[in-house]
Design a protein around this nucleic acid. Structure first.
Length: 898
RNA sequence: GGGCAUUUAGCUCAGUUGGUUAGAGCGUUCGGUUUACAUCCGAAAGGUCGCAGGUUCGAAUCCUGCAAUGCCCACCA
């Protein structure tokens, strides 16, 4: 079998993935005896979505870590799964139903849920395939879904525990309400959109008040002013009658420092039912909470003659009525404020009072005598959880400090229904609330049958907060021993998980809540390290979205064209944690080129070099050439550096190190040298194997494909015992050995490289074509051996046809003069323009003089000599010596121009 | 309003704890049928490291201020 000239990813990728999957090594149980666990819980994509480029980012980074850890011998587990994503999914399915002219109510709860489940299952199949396309080596046998029985049990279990700990409670209070989703939202699910609107001023009793929302003001009976405001001081505490929308109304004036006298008229009425601030004020001063707008966005009976009308649409009519009564003072146009909108559907939210379930974040948890806020803060403060990049720790603490109780009940159908049952008074019950996994047949208090389950479902983040441990079998995977709950099975082995890798955009939604849940339920952190990646942006720097097709990069389009490996590389190279990535097709193409380069390096080694040297060095033990010790030294340094970068989560830098070794050193130098020296079969084989292993976590498909070829050939050559593993995925990670690093070889080969590069440069500058061979004369008092040994290299790589190496003697005149370390090179070009050469040399002299002057100055600076470290001073002295040496030679050479 | 970040070559971005001449990819220019690769090879050009101060023997790197851009949080009735 021979390898084609270029790598065609689509011909190999599916086959290679199947090979991995069949091997069983995605499952750590099949990896043999391994002591150290390494685990990642894959952030579950929405079950009804399809993967976009952002998902690729997480898959690539996590797969990189998992593959690396699998190779260094860890028990590596990556748990995949999907999230039911309650609101998002329900919205999506409702939209599809709407196309058929139906609503969920036409189907009824049960039928609707069946419909959603069916749809989700189809999408999940697509997602599974997409994850495979990217090359993710996750353990499919452990795949989970947030609505699985086990995970649902975990949800109820946490709810029940929190309820009995007094952390979950039910309360009537103002909440964020999305009239379109017909559900409450948590504070974090609210987005703000800047909006320009009208700001109205109305006469209200003795004062003028301002408002942007007249339609909420029907029952405003409290005026608040600043206690020190001289305009209103006389009215504070008074009660008076004001003419209002539906006739006279009795109102109070109170004073509170929260009012800004400079805003509007300095007097405001409060609307406790429809403003968070006003709600707090109303609680403080014990004013009634009146619901003016209902869940459909319509005005309630509290609005008198307007009852039943849509609130926002009635605004102008209400203003007109007040105007007619002479109560409209004036209108301010273009009032700028932020409108709160639903993060899922962008609909303007309606704050309204409602009876809902909440998680208290400030009340002490009995077991820990600490609040959930404290638990969340402690985990990061104590460094049990570290966030990369570190700056997000600040953001995290700030979020915790401002956190309010978490509204967890949602009025949608799709999700985990609350494990709450009511013994309803309407059904002759006692009003008892029962929180349990399963409904009791009768009320435990009054024995009334027919308990009614709460219709609401839980916030989707409540269940995803449990993800790291619910996926590993909690709560069943625990047993009581000596009065303590101990973890068993996977939960014991893999929890806390090692790394949570996700986008910074869900730090609050998800990462924080996982910490909350794990700290509460298990008393331990959910993960040790949080690695936050940035967003994938298009060429214009905007977040990629389906609505902008021209700049959208869809992974499913890219993979067939450029290959999954190229896509993967583009998400790693030059990408740093927490920073956004601007992606375009050219970038991906450049990594496709690299993948192809690697392909051809392997192709040369596996086919051409072997063919050229069939038997020669298979058995014979050859002595190593300078180039050999050089490349071995460089490879070892590369292994050492790349490993160190990966350990420190600097994946981009690791890939940089690998790229420059592979392309610049191995391909451009060593393979070219191998063609000259010959007999490199063993050493090239060994280098290739190491290089493939090093690249494998980054670009697994091409490396595995090549490794399979490598192993085919190795099978015929190696004895069975030293045969490497069948698949690269479980090949041991290369280890660096200090004894192979050779500074002298790097220096000496570096001189050969510099000589060749310097001569090449001189050739181009003097207009000598590549085909034209020239002569060179080398003078060196100390390196004649090096020069003699590398005559063939110099000849071929610098296109020379005749070389003279001398220790001393007469220097050629009218020749181009070059200098590398102590080696002088003369290129007698005969016909060239010596005037140009003279100019070039004079320019060189000036350049070096400038540098020498600055170093000389530095070295004559007493402060520098006194305070700088000795090695730095020594370096500078060496530099100066080099400059002086070079200058002396240049000047000497210049004298030869007549 | 508060906070975080970014600002380095034409473009996209690296640059560990301050220490030679600040790097890469793409792009540009010049030259190439070298028997692995034109998805390639060789050579080169291109940077006051946003601006202004400061600390230091020494600053892209640390500190202060300013500017531009982006994001997050809060939100005034």
């Amino acid at each position: 079998m021979s390898l084609p000239k270029s790598y065609c990813a689509s011909e190999h990728e599916d086959r290679i993935y199947a090979l991995w999957e069949k091997s069983g090594f995605f499952n750590p149980n099949n990896l043999g005896k391994r002591a150290r666990p390494f685990s990642i819980a894959m952030p579950p994509p929405n079950a009804t979505g399809t993967l976009h480029i952002g998902h690729c980012m997480m898959l690539v980074l996590q797969d990189l870590m998992i593959r690396y850890h699998r190779m260094i011998g860890d028990k590596a587990l990556w748990v995949p799964g999907t999230d039911h994503a309650s609101i998002a999914t329900q919205n999506k399915v409702e939209k599809l139903l709407a196309k058929e002219g139906k609503t969920r109510h036409d189907l009824g709860r049960e039928k609707f849920l069946e419909h959603v489940a069916e749809y989700a299952e189809k999408s999940r199949n697509t997602i599974r395939n997409q994850i495979r396309k990217v090359g993710a080596s996750c353990d499919w046998s452990r795949e989970r879904y947030t609505l699985d029985a086990g995970l649902s049990k975990a949800v109820s279990e946490v709810f029940i525990r929190m309820y009995s700990d007094g952390l979950i409670y039910r309360d009537y209070r103002i909440v964020h309400w999305c009239p379109r989703c017909h559900s409450t939202l948590s504070d974090d699910e609210v987005k703000y959109r800047p909006e320009k609107t009208k700001f109205y001023y109305f006469k209200f009793g003795p004062v003028v008040i301002g408002t942007a929302r007249p339609e909420t003001k029907f029952q405003d009976k409290t005026i608040v002013v600043h206690p020190d405001d001289p305009r209103y001081k006389q009215f504070i505490g008074q009660e008076f009658t004001a003419e209002w929308i539906d006739g006279p109304i009795t109102a109070h004036m109170i004073a509170d420092p929260i009012v800004d006298p400079a805003f509007g008229t300095g007097a405001m009425t409060i609307t406790p039912g429809h403003s968070f601030e006003d709600f707090d004020l109303a609680k403080k001063y014990q004013r009634p909470i009146v619901k003016i707008i209902d869940e459909d966005g319509n005005l309630t009976k509290e609005s008198g003659s307007f009852a039943g009308k849509n609130a926002r649409e009635s605004r102008e009519e209400i203003v007109a009525r007040l105007d007619k009564k002479g109560l409209l003072d004036h209108i301010e146009e273009n009032y700028e404020h932020n409108l709160s909108v639903c993060y899922r559907c962008d609909t303007a939210l309606e704050p309204l009072p409602s009876l809902q379930w909440f998680v208290s974040v400030s009340q002490a948890v009995p077991t820990y005598s600490k609040s959930l806020k404290d638990l969340m803060r402690d985990a990061v403060e104590s460094s049990r959880v570290t966030i990369i990049p570190k700056r997000f720790e600040k953001t995290y603490f700030h979020w915790i400090d401002n956190l309010r109780d978490w509204c967890i009940s949602r009025q949608i159908w799709f999700g985990h229904q609350l494990p709450v049952y009511y013994c309803k008074k309407e059904k002759k019950g006692c009003g008892e609330i029962i929180v349990a996994h399963v409904a009791p047949d009768t009320c435990p208090k009054c024995n009334t049958p027919d308990l009614v389950r709460d219709e609401d479902t839980l916030d989707t983040w409540f269940s995803s907060g449990l993800w790291t441990f619910s996926t590993l079998g909690w709560p069943d995977a625990t047993e009581e021993k000596h009065g303590r709950m101990n973890k068993t099975g996977d939960l014991a082995t893999f929890h806390p998980t090692s790394v949570m890798e996700t986008g910074y955009d869900i730090l609050f939604f998800w990462v924080a809540r996982m910490i909350l849940m794990s700290e509460y339920a298990l008393g331990e952190e959910p993960f040790h390290t949080v690695y936050l990646h940035g967003l994938v942006l298009d060429v214009e720097g905007k977040k990629m979205s389906k609505s902008k097709e021209e700049t959208l990069i869809d992974p499913l389009d890219v993979i067939p064209t450029y290959g999954a490996d190229a896509l993967r590389a583009s998400m790693v190279v030059g990408v740093t944690p927490g920073n956004d990535l601007r992606l375009n097709a050219e970038k991906i193409a450049s990594y496709r080129n690299f993948v192809n380069k690697l392909w051809n390096i392997a192709r040369y080694i596996l086919e051409f070099d072997v063919a050229a040297e069939p038997e020669k060095d298979a058995k014979k033990k050859t002595t190593l050439s300078l180039a050999d010790t050089w490349i071995i030294s460089r490879l070892n340094a590369t292994v050492r550096e790349a490993t160190s970068h990966i350990k420190k989560y600097r994946f981009s830098q690791a890939s940089e190190v690998l790229r420059s070794f592979t392309w610049d050193e191995l391909a451009d130098w060593y393979i070219e040298v191998a063609k000259i020296e010959g007999g490199k079969r063993n050493i090239l084989f060994s280098i290739l194997r190491t290089v493939l292993a090093l690249w494998h976590p980054f670009i697994p498909f091409v490396t595995e494909t090549l490794y399979q070829q490598y192993r085919e050939i190795a099978k015929d050559t190696f004895d069975k015992k030293s045969l490497p593993p069948e698949i690269l995925m479980i090949h041991p990670w290369p280890t660096a050995q200090k004894k192979y690093e050779n500074k002298k070889a790097e220096e000496d080969f570096g001189i050969v490289q510099q000589l060749i590069q310097t001569i090449r440069n001189a050739r181009v500058e003097n207009g000598i074509t590549a085909a034209q061979k020239i002569q060179a004369v080398f003078f060196s008092s100390t390196r004649t051996d090096l020069l003699h040994a590398h005559q063939p290299h110099l000849k071929r790589l610098a296109s020379l046809d005749f070389i003279t190496v001398l220790e001393k003697g007469d220097k050629p005149t009218n020749a181009v003069f070059l200098k590398v370390h102590d080696i002088e090179v003369y290129l007698p070009l005969g016909l060239m323009k010596m005037e140009d050469e003279k100019k070039r040399m004079l320019a060189d002299v000036r350049k070096i003089e400038t540098r020498a002057t600055s170093v000389r100055q530095l070295l004559s600076d007493g402060q520098f000599l006194a305070k700088a470290p000795k090695n730095i001073i020594k370096k500078e002295q060496e530099r100066l010596a080099q400059y002086q040496d070079a200058l002396a030679h240049l000047r000497e050479q210049l004298t030869k121009f007549t």
